[in-house]
Simulated assay, not measured.
Amino acid sequence: MQGEAVIRHLAAVWLLAVSTATHAFMDFELVLAEQGYYTGQELYTLGKGTSLFTAYVTAVYDADRTSQRLGPEYCVPRGVRAGQLADVAYQYLDNNPATRHLSAAYLARMSFRAAFPCPPAPR
């Protein structure tokens, strides 16, 4: 009888761990969207064409390029310059005002995903 109780207890702990991990994974992107020093609104307010706006967006891109261990989230073609990245991010913020409360870095990343999707992997 005691052995069955231990097995039930271990099964309950395992189910709790799996459901917690699954929930955490599903909410990971939401957590990233809500964290950050600047919000999208603050970045948008800096204004397109300002050096701080361009520097921030370029820093997000550079940070992503150096930390893409699991594969790229987006594929920026060769020759795209900092000003074009800033244009893409500003246009995304301009077209999506309802999301500007989210992290500026997250929204910059989303703008790159939308503008520069990666080609499908070869079969």
Rank of each mutant, 00 (worst) to 15 (best):
E42A: 10
E29F: 02
D27E: 12
K48Y: 14
M110V: 08
A115S: 09
G71C: 01
R113I: 15
A104K: 05
A108H: 01
F53G: 08
T99S: 12
R100T: 02
V6K: 14
Y38M: 12
V80C: 00
W14Q: 11
Y74R: 05
N95Q: 15
R69H: 15
V31E: 04
V88I: 08
F28C: 03
T50Y: 08
T39V: 06
R8C: 03
Y44G: 03
E73I: 09
G36F: 01
Y56H: 13
Q41E: 00
Q91Y: 06
A17Y: 06
R65D: 04
R69K: 15
Y44S: 07
P122K: 10
P117C: 08
E42C: 00
Q41I: 05
T45Y: 04
S51G: 05
V80A: 01
F116Q: 02
M110N: 07
V6N: 05
A33N: 00
M1F: 14
A12T: 07
L85M: 01
A114V: 07
F25H: 12
H9V: 10
Y92S: 03
D64Q: 12
A5F: 04
M1H: 13
D87E: 15
L93D: 00
R113Q: 11
A24E: 03
H23A: 15
P119L: 08
G79S: 01
E73D: 10
S103I: 04
S111L: 02
D27S: 11
W14D: 11
A11V: 07
S19E: 07
V57A: 14
P97M: 01
E42S: 08
L30K: 14
Q2P: 13
D62I: 11
V6I: 15
N95P: 03
A114D: 13
A55K: 11
P120H: 13
M1W: 12
D62E: 14
D94W: 14
G49I: 06
E29S: 03
V60W: 01
A104C: 00
L85D: 01
L15D: 04
C118Q: 06
A59H: 14
Q91D: 10
Y106N: 01
L43I: 00
G3H: 14
L15C: 09
K48M: 13
Y56L: 10
V31A: 10
D64W: 08
L107H: 06
R100H: 03
R109K: 12
F28V: 04
N96Y: 04
T50L: 06
G83D: 09
F25Q: 10
L70T: 13
V13A: 09
G47P: 02
H23Q: 11
G40S: 06
D64M: 08
H23T: 14
F28R: 11
P122C: 08
D27N: 11
A12I: 05
